[in-house]
Nucleic acid binder design. Sequence first.
DNA 1: AGTATTTGTTCTAAATAGTAGAGTATTTCT
DNA 2: AGAAATACTCTACTATTTAGAACAAATACT
Lengths: 118, 118
Amino acid sequence: MKQTGKNSSLGEFEHIVLLTLIRLGDQAYGMSVRSKINQLIKRDISIGAIYTTLDRLEDKGYVKSRLGEATARRGGRAKKYFSVTASGRRVLKEVRANLEVLWEGVQLSAPLAAGNGR
Amino acid sequence: MKQTGKNSSLGEFEHIVLLTLIRLGDQAYGMSVRSKINQLIKRDISIGAIYTTLDRLEDKGYVKSRLGEATARRGGRAKKYFSVTASGRRVLKEVRANLEVLWEGVQLSAPLAAGNGR
DNA sequence: AGTATTTGTTCTAAATAGTAGAGTATTTCT
DNA sequence: AGAAATACTCTACTATTTAGAACAAATACT
């Protein structure tokens, strides 16, 4: 009875988006996710990239969405809010655990023992 | 003068492979990378997946390879050893830094207010 | 009212990354 | 020589990432 719960992995960007959604809480929607990512790490992602990822994440059941109402500001049209599901949090936790194992003991910095080059 | 040093990011699996190479040190070659990954995180990757990723990583300049000699054991044919370049370490460092920022303050665990599960 | 501007999402197309597995080389053991 | 073991190559395919134009809806301005 292989309880192989799928290859619990996340694409690199899916990982980023999921974390950002959690960060933004109830203020997470396409545009805000985009600017938050741009703010947190220096990476300018197109808006299309955000939505395709959000959609895929929803297909996988890692996020769910709800439609909001328009706000009273110029162009403030209805937003589509996203939130991370329990399943999404679980996979995030697993990915994190794997990363911790993989990074454990890895020392980047100085190539000390490399035999003084040559 | 945009010193845009590329979108320093790494695919999810590239990330894993790079870390594993560092772990294995001078004993890193296709087959050992595969079994090491399988050992560290529970993930059974095909051998083909390992090599295509290794090749791609080499194209990007994140790893370099050298050919070893055959060892005196049944089937011990010549191995192709891989090592992470300075550039590879650099990108790894950047990815790590980004991940740290993204995870900062993110609390997964208890959905306290979620209404007792379900 | 009519139109420009702004905020926001959809859709489409294309490039990059991830994955499996069969095929090919060697090498030792019997 | 033939079998078994270790290792790498190659090919094909699927999934993820990415950009940007198109579309929608709401307010601001004249």
